[in-house]
Design a protein around this nucleic acid. Structure first.
Lengths: 199, 199
DNA sequence: CATTTTCTAGAATATTGTTCTAATGGCCGG
DNA sequence: CCGGCCATTAGAACAATATTCTAGAAAATG
């Protein structure tokens, strides 16, 4: 009878499960969050949950991968509107800061969950994503280094130098241990980032 | 009869459990590591394990808290042998790098496990530890700032600026995504750290 | 409209964290 | 040396919870 039967209101279960899981994970951590809690919050059945995701870790993986993908895509888009090395380096810092401020819950999840037990599929997806992203980032910055606008350093050190501080601060801020909003201190980190890699 | 009975070789069960757990946690993550795996590796019984630790998270908490305590204590000891702001700032970076290189497994655990579900007791212990540590660190650096040897910045930004990059790099290195050993790139991060906070 | 696929539901099952009871061995006061 | 006490160990019993399974309803497809 009508829509209150088994197949009730289901515009997109998938998304409601992801949202519910994000909230649960942030409240008690991935491990402590139970399927039952997520199920109840999403207002769905166990079967439905397992139909959309392989497992609890599957939900966490999806949140993680999609979150990183969005963060990365935004950076690339922003870089493409930058002129020159300094603007690009600063954009990395400011993008990180503003993304975190506008995706607080998701950011909290991404920055606090480093030990998701990714499935082989998820690992492959993540690896491919990183490969593309870092490829894009390095081909953007490569010319600046060649031209001498940026210092030549061991390749693996650029990202920690540029993003390390703002990322670290974001963790502090998200966990409530630092009060000044990211937007207020981003400039400090942008200055430091540029100073550390300027040619 | 002799020592092969129930109460077998037990110089310090507690430590063998911690070691076994550390290995398991690093191999498959805290969540995926089972009590059974840890128990087997430590060569003890379930009862023994739960006698020494309240729970699986209790083991993880102990590893985490003791690890951080050691890292922090080492830093304070090292700072006390430094003269001046620059040497102190550089010492922070170098201490972090060398500690990670000489405690690889423990470092891997500390840097990848941000979502341990600490008990109230553990939270209190950790909070007290951080309180003392940051108190000591800030009273060490405070005079340098007052004297103008270091720039005055929002207090919460110093740690990300100084430790953020080397910490971020350590994560990369420990996960195998960066090859140059920490000791080889530490100087880059020390330079950057000092540049970002120098007066 | 038949049928095929996707989706939902919830009971049944399996895994695994935790508790409980009993027993062992050292330690110490007598 | 004795006898009780406490820390420690063991492993079975228990409980919580992740996952699988079967059935059926809704949408999609032709």
């Amino acid at each position: 009878m009508s829509r209150t039967s088994t197949h009730a209101a289901t515009p997109d279960r998938r998304q409601s499960i992801l949202s519910a899981a994000l909230a649960c994970f942030n409240e008690v951590g991935i491990e402590a969050a139970t399927i039952e809690q997520i199920r109840e919050r999403a207002g769905c059945s166990i079967g439905s949950l397992y139909h959309h995701f392989r497992s609890k870790e599957g939900v966490a993986s999806r949140l993680f991968i999609d979150g990183i993908a969005d963060l990365n895509a935004g950076l690339i888009a922003r870089l493409e509107q930058c002129e020159g090395a300094e603007a690009s380096v600063r954009a990395c810092v400011h993008h990180y800061a503003s993304w975190v401020e506008s995706h607080i819950e998701l950011a909290r999840f991404l920055l606090h969950s480093r030990d998701i037990n990714f499935s082989l599929d998820a690992k492959a997806e993540l690896k491919g994503m990183y490969h593309n992203h870092f490829g894009a980032v390095f081909s953007w910055f490569g010319p600046f280094v060649l031209r001498g606008d940026m210092r030549q350093l061991p390749p693996e050190t650029y990202i920690p130098l540029i993003s390390g501080p703002v990322e670290d601060y974001a963790r502090l801020w998200l966990s409530g241990r630092a009060k000044p909003p990211l937007s207020e201190v981003a400039e400090v980190f942008a200055d430091a980032a540029w100073a550390s890699v300027a040619g």
